[in-house]
Amino acid sequence: MVPSEEARKLVLSFADDELCVGQNHSWWIAIGPFLEEDLAFTSIAQDELGHARALYSLLTDDIDHLAYGRNHSEYRSAHIAEFLCHDWSSALVRHVLHDMAEQIRWSALTNSSWTALGETAQRALAEENFHIQHGLSLLRRLLSSDEGQKRLEPIVLSLAPYGREYFADCDEGLIDDGLLTISMADQERMWVDQVLETFDDFNISVDMGEETQSSGRSGIRSDDFATLHDEMTAVIQIDPNAQW
């Protein structure tokens, strides 16, 4: 089948989310709070970048150009994926919110009528299981202490509403085409329920707001994006023809 323009847009914004989160996770290489966490974040970063590569490869043969060579306004990442989160607590909370969303987003694609996308989703979902297990078990342990609760609660309250943007894509025609098996609105509801339930266990009641508060999907970048993009393109800026 020839994927529709809407289908390609959905894949592009998913890929951009994965690229930004993968790049952001890699910030913790060698400076994670303890060795196992350092290794876990590094591995998860590697997985997310691998997933970005797999998604971009569905759209182009020139992956480097698509990943690194666009103007900022041509990226479609959700702002929550772009945030630098150079504080460990924020990085952990974003990791959990992102991976909860990913589980749902990949699940909605595993039976896609776009066969290559469906196979990529099955493959990615198998790799994702440990991400959410890892993030949630650590977050729950930290939230079980007064100190952890005090530090994490304000971050959860401020970051969680941004996660709604993961589901801000237009899905017009995609359900009818069999490209997507769960509508974006249903995916968002599933994610919101899961987030509310997770934090409710720790008496944190998250206010998700009325609607998505950021507009990364329409081409507006967060304040952090320029720094993130400079970092991910540092090598290619020095030598545009570098081979790696």
Partner: peptide
């Protein structure tokens, strides 16, 4: 098990 990931993912 001591760590989910080791020297490689």
């Amino acid at each position: 098990k001591r760590s989910d990931v080791g020297p490689t993912a």
